Every structure is written in C-alpha cells, then in structure tokens.
Simulated assay, not measured.
Amino acid sequence: MQRRKVIFSGILIALSGIILWMFTTHDAFLYKQSIAEVINVKNEEPVETEDPYQNKDETTQQILTLKVLNGKNKGKIVTAQNEFSKSGAYDQKYHEGQQVFLNIHHHKKKLTANISHYKRDTYLIMLVWLVTVLLYVFMHVKGLRTLLSVIMNFIIFLIFVEIDVSYDFTNFFWLFATSAIIFTGLSLVLVIGWNKQCLVSFLSIVFGTTVALILGILILYLTGNQGIHYEALDFATQEPQQLFLSATVIGLLGAVMDAATDIVSTLFEMKRKQPEISAKQLYKSGQEVGHAIMGPLINVLLMIFFAETFAIAVLYFRTGNTYAYTFEWAMALGVAQALISGIGITLVIPSASFLCSRFLGRRNKKCPQS
C-alpha cells in the first residue's frame, strides 16, 4: 500500500510538472503585450568597440525573424534587430525557439517591431514548482508551511516597497527595518509555531541583528566610509547609503536567523530528551553547535556574495580594469554586507545559547512542547 502511494504521488508530481511546462510555453494569450517566437536568426560579423577609457568589447548585430503568438497580429511574421555584446552585461543573444516580448508598430501599412525583453515565466514557474516539490517530499506539511512563509514575506516586502514609492520617505531605512522584524516574527510563527521556542528564537535574532548592524554602521562611520562607494548601487533613485543599509539589514537577518534557529532548535530538542540537563550544559552545548555551524554559514555568505558580483566583476576584468578598481566599485559593498552578516552570526551564538539556558536551564523544568 505504501509503495503504491509513493508511486501514485510520483506520477502526480511528474504530471503536474509536464502540465505546467506545456501551459507556460503556450500562455501568450494571457498577456496584453505582444509575444513572438524566434523562428530564424541571422548573425552579422562581430565588430570590436572601444570606449574613451580604452575598455574593449565586441558587439554583434542580429536580424531576427519572429512569429507573433497573440493579439490582433497573431500569426503574422515580423523582423526585428538585436545587438548583443561579448561581455553580455546589459544585453542578450537570442536563439531560435525562444519567446520574447515585442513592441509592434505600424509604419506605412507595414509592421515593424523591436524586442522589449525575454519571456522568462516558464523558467520561473518551473523553479517554483521544483522548490515546492522538494519541500513537500522532504518536509511534508512543514515544508509547505515554510513555502507559505516565503510567499507571505514576499507579499509584505512588496507592500513596504509600494509604501516607500508612494510616500517617498526621506528616512526609509526604518521602514525596511520594521519589515525585517515582521519577516522574522511571521516566519518563526508559521514554521515553528507560537511557543517558547519561537520566542527565544525571535529575541536572539533581534539581538544579534541589531547589535551587528550598530557595530557595522559604527565601523563605517569611524573609518569615514573609505573604499565604500554607495553611488555604485545599480539604479539608485533614493539615498544610496540608506538603500545599502536597508539591503544589509535584510541580508543580515537571513544569516542570523539561520544560525539562531539551528542553535535554539537543537537545545530545545536536547532538553526534551534530557530533562535533567543544567543551564551551564545547555549554554556550552549551544556554543559548540554555534562553532560547528559558523564556518559553513560564513562560507555560504561568501558564495552568495560571489554569485551576486560574479557577472559585473567579469565585465570589469574583460574591459581591462585593474583588480583594485574592480574590487572598489563592484565588490566592496558586497564584502561590507558579508562582514556585517558575519558579525551577526558570531554574536547570535552566545545570545541564543544564553537565552535557551535561561529558559530551559532549571533541572526540574521540562521542555515546553512545540
């Protein structure tokens, strides 16, 4: 019976993925903007370019033949031009079979078109499907609750962004700091439940995040922000420093939450299995758990930083910039954020261990059920 259930679940999961793939590759009718499929590509000879700073690149013109998939022009064939560079920083090379958004114009009873951007919904939805499947397979209902917390946090984040855009706050850092506290509380309640474990986790996360952020800001202030170019932030339309700090507090929160929940959940489980364990033993165990996870977590932060800066760093190197210039303008902000997050991880280890030892440390006190 169990084997049949597993096979049936696997078939349902596979069918859901196939159905989603088929639907998203044929969902052009859902969009108001014109969508077309690339049916033929002609690449011209590449041309070398050089800017006033002696940065060299190579650009290639494409002539694309496209078939419109929706709207009043459905089924019509149009041509469009595209230019892509060898560095590939702000442009894209197109291939046959890809779908793109078009801006179609009528000129002297002839259709002309230019590409707006690439249609990515299929890949995004399939990634969401894969994450959902993995959470369900390995964590069951708890995994779905985790996914629900992610969705709700994303919605809350969009609400706070909309508030910032609508009211154009001068000091908007506090707006996103507030959103970070809401993220923390909501995630813990949904994943852990409303109990003492949730409370201890929340207090340790808030403490570690707050103190690490204060120390980071203090260090930046005392050093005069040397080597930190806030103006290097992409598309910064508000105060660059506040944008940097807002992004830092959200990233810091994620790192601290990871460490805190690992320590707190481990100590609560130890208390359930060993009710006689003392506060001193709990604190020592929390420290040992923290030291064990600190190295991997900091390495994860570095990997995330490398992933975020990889493309722009390669572009800087390909266009002849020095290591020092590339680091200062493309990587320094990310390094600063990673260091502040590392401080948060270091601080949350003793704070989470101490709070757990105070809440659970009495020998005759049983661990509260989650």
Rank of each mutant, 00 (worst) to 15 (best):
V211D: 02
L203Y: 00
L147H: 07
Y136M: 06
A177T: 07
G342E: 07
D27K: 05
L213T: 13
W329K: 14
I219F: 13
I217S: 00
I151Y: 06
K196F: 04
L111H: 10
D91F: 07
I214K: 07
S187N: 13
I156A: 12
W129Q: 11
A80K: 03
V131R: 05
I18N: 05
Y325E: 10
G224R: 00
Y94H: 11
E231G: 04
K110L: 05
V211P: 02
L213R: 09
M139I: 03
I19D: 04
Q92S: 05
L333A: 03
N321F: 14
V300G: 00
K284Q: 14
L297S: 07
L148S: 15
Q241V: 07
Q99D: 01
I293H: 08
W129F: 14
T122R: 06
F29H: 13
E288C: 01
F84C: 03
Q2W: 08
G88S: 04
F202D: 01
F354L: 06
N114A: 04
Q197T: 15
K56M: 08
L175M: 08
V133Q: 13
Q369A: 11
V68H: 10
T112H: 07
A212Y: 05
A292D: 15
I312T: 15
R3V: 13
K32C: 04
F317P: 10
T209L: 08
H291W: 12
K109S: 15
G208Y: 12
Y316M: 06
D262S: 13
F29Y: 14
E276P: 12
L315G: 00
V249S: 03
L220K: 02
F84M: 03
P52L: 08
W329P: 08
I181R: 02
K67M: 10
S370Y: 15
D262V: 12
T319R: 12
L222V: 13
Q281T: 08
T59I: 14
I151H: 01
G97V: 09
Q33Y: 09
L203N: 00
P296A: 01
L135K: 03
I35C: 04
K72S: 06
V165Y: 14
L203A: 02
A324C: 00
L134M: 11
I163A: 14
F176P: 01
E58A: 13
A14G: 01
I104R: 04
T25F: 00
V335Y: 07
F359Q: 06
G227P: 10
I214V: 13
N103F: 02
F101D: 01
F84E: 04
K284D: 12
N82A: 09
S278K: 10
V41H: 07
I104V: 08
S179I: 02
I205F: 01
F354A: 02
F359L: 05
F172D: 03
K32R: 12
F306N: 05
D121K: 08
Y221Q: 09
T210S: 14
Q238S: 13
A232C: 09
T79M: 11
I18A: 13
A259H: 01
L30N: 03
D164Y: 03
Y123M: 10
H95V: 14
